[in-house]
């Protein structure tokens, strides 16, 4: 896949000296779902704003679809749709008017059929004549997405798209994001819900205090950084496990023995452990395995 967004050595220092971004470099591939993770103040929104032209970077360069966002801003911005974190809507306008306005603002000719499809996809069609101020928070969030999609962007930025929305709407959003990806749109999302990134993202970038800690394929990241556990429950808590199992790192709590595995270490795999257990004829009542979630990996990475 070719690169849709290229970020090279981007630094943003505010006038007070605070460095919100520090030499951040990575590429976002065309057609992928990229999740940008980081705790509050990590620089996620600053980076998105820099890409979308809402703030000026101090150093570095950003390209969207091959166009520099400063030197060739119009070409770059044509390709971008942005759904900001805050609920910013034209409260007194009707849903139809505010979405149509966004399309015109980006220089696209009127296309009522296109707007109708977007509103129907987002379950907003019945509300098209309603003033935005009369809608619920979740509906307003949908309106913002409709506005961002109205000019048919090639790359869509979703800054905390599911913050404060109910489970049903969150699922709807996930489905929408998948549909958009299928239609060729590149999607960059920031989220606090790490299960969301785990569920949706192809690749993951982690920012901490303005610095990029890692950019990696989600599955690779989880393999590299993830841990597996096998928990063995034995009948007698006083039992001693055979010495041959010592090479597997384990801890005991009552009748439960917890074995830790590095996902990448083949020699000390769960399979090898199970062979040893059977060879040593260890009697057990129950066993279960557990894998690190993205949340646990994220917590581990940003703990520094």
């Amino acid at each position: 896949m070719s690169s849709m967004v290229s970020i090279q050595n981007v630094t943003k220092t505010y006038s007070g000296g605070f460095k919100a971004l520090d030499q951040v470099s990575f590429d976002i591939k065309s057609g992928e779902i990229f999740a940008l993770l980081g705790s509050n103040g990590a620089g996620k929104t600053t980076l998105i704003q820099a890409i979308c032209g809402l703030l000026r970077i101090t150093e570095g360069a950003i390209e969207v679809g091959g166009s520099d966002v400063v030197l060739n801003a119009k070409n770059a911005r044509e390709k971008i749709g942005l759904v900001p974190q805050e609920l910013c809507v034209d409260t007194f306008e009707s849903v139809w008017n505010t979405v149509s306005f966004s399309r015109g603002l980006f220089g696209k000719p009127k296309d009522p059929g296109k707007i109708e499809k977007i509103l129907k996809d987002l379950s907003l069609w019945d509300k098209r004549k309603n003033r935005v101020m009369t809608l619920s928070g979740g509906m307003k969030r949908r309106v913002m997405i409709a506005k961002a999609l109205s000019h048919e962007p090639e790359v869509l930025f979703l800054d905390e798209p599911t913050a404060g929305v109910d489970v049903e709407l969150r699922k709807d959003m996930w489905n929408l994001v998948r549909k958009l990806q299928e239609s060729g749109v590149t999607i960059i999302l920031t989220t606090h819900y790490l299960e969301e990134a785990e569920e949706m993202a192809d690749r993951i970038g982690v920012l901490s205090k303005g610095k990029l800690l890692v950019v990696e394929d989600k599955d690779v990241l989880m393999k590299k950084m993830g841990k597996r556990q096998l928990i063995l429950e034995v009948e007698d808590p006083a039992v001693n496990l055979p010495l041959s199992l010592d090479r597997f790192h384990y801890t005991q709590k009552g009748s439960f023995f917890t074995f830790q595995f590095d996902v990448v270490n083949e020699e000390l795999s769960i399979g090898a452990l199970m062979s040893e257990i059977h060879s040593a004829n260890v009697q057990y009542l129950n066993l279960q395995t557990k894998e690190s979630s993205l949340e646990e990996i994220f917590m581990e990475m940003t703990r520094i």
Partner: peptide, 14 residues
Amino acid sequence: FTGTIYEVLSAPIG
């Protein structure tokens, strides 16, 4: 005031 200025500032206009 409402924050909707983001849309104008991020649009491909001069």
